[in-house]
Amino acid sequence: MAATLLSVAAKSAAGRDSAVARAVDALPQVRTNLSSPERWVSLAAGGALFGLGFDGRGPGLLSCLAGTYLLYRAATGNCLAYQALGFSTSDATAPASVIAAEHGTRVEHVVTVMKPADQVYRFWRDFENLPRFMTHLVDVDTTTDGRSRWVAKGPLGLQVEWEAELLTDTPNRVIAWKSVDGSDVDTAGSVRFTDLPHGQGTEVRVELKYDPPGGKVGSAVARLFGENPDRQVREDLRRFKQILETGETPTTEGQPHGRR
């Protein structure tokens, strides 16, 4: 009974598609890792999530690797990102999405960083910093002419690469980019910076768009990488904020412990 109650409570609290719901589905496997999670109905979902994520095995691993910026060009070869991101600096403050919503996967998240907008902007604008907080990225190299070469972790240890170009760059306000025409990967993104009054830091709003992959291989890749892009982006932004506010990301990796 406990496990059932637990699953129902956790799922209804967290929503059907959440990582928690999936973690709870796999609960029987991890229950032995936990002290007695059923005692805390409301929190045990977190325990299950932990058990999965930290064992580094099970379904959580793939979602951890979810490469949210990756996409494979749709079978049509039509680049939606280009038309979606064709906006100018004049709409830099408009709340409307810069990415057409009707196609592909779109993720939007917001985080507030306790640093002035110019500093936050500068950190993001140096795309070579992105792999420090976007865990699926291996490397970003900026070249001259505002272009950059992105390398991401793919499935089965493969690497996926594409080239991106800047669409908009208004210092301390907005940056937008997309993969260049003809890339293997069709992606676009924007980040807006809003200076908050009274030294309350900078609101950072990120939108990312990626097209659905085409073909059999493409959909397999999509399943592997796209399991929870929403969660991935949220965690990426958490790391972004941590690096700016503290200069590091918190970790316990490598600390001592007794017999497991």
Partner: peptide, 14 residues
Amino acid sequence: CDNSNPNAEVADTA
């Protein structure tokens, strides 16, 4: 504090 928990996602969920 926002920045000290490596497992913040778990605590946020709870």
